[in-house]
Amino acid sequence: MSEWWTYGPRDLLMFSQQTYYRLFELYNLELWPLQILALGLGAAVLALGWRGGDRAGRAIAAILAVCWLWVAWGFHWQRYASINVAAGYFALAFVVQALLLLWLGAGRGRLTPLPATRLQQRAGLGLLLFALLLFPLMGPLLGRSWTQAEVFGMVPDPTALATLGVLLLAGGRPAWALFPIPVAWCLLSGTTLWAMESTDFAVVPFAALLAVLLAVGGALMKRSSR
């Protein structure tokens, strides 16, 4: 299609809100109780982030990489692609993020929990907790079915937010290369929800931008304190 720049997000939206959330419902029902395992992995990330240390950072990176790979395959490629012609590209981006996590996090130890500021630490843990515990509740609280809950490690939004939380926790030595894909996904997801007229469209982009601001702020503070 030419003249892409003249199209708004609502012109490009290919599916209805009902179809989008039904995708989560069918996915959850089909794979239950894998969600419990995913939440267990999330709890492990939280515990490792709390404990700190180089080995914990490498383990967190490996867990997150597995989650990003699964979301690429199980969600984007296997399911989202059935209603969105761009989902193949999303899957590819998620694989790239998984490889970056393995390379920079598991390989080079750049996800060692070492926040630059107390605020960063709190925000990092807060974002992790939000992604793991509150995010799955958000849909049901807004009137959507429990079966449509979005769970960390299973679907993109909470996985991206939890990753940003981990990046904040490792903010003492930020791995900037790990930011673009989760942040871009959060902005894209917010735009999709906005185009679908979903009431919670601002939550994910807002949280992502807050994480970026705190990461940049922490890095600047650390530099100025040298």
């Binding site: 939206l13 290919m14 209805s16 179809t19 039904r22 995708l23 069918l26 399911r79 209603i83």
Partner: peptide
């Protein structure tokens, strides 16, 4: 059929 028929593999839809 734009949007309305794009229901993926949802048998009910």
């Amino acid at each position: 059929s734009w949007i309305t028929f794009n229901v993926g593999n949802d048998r009910v839809a």
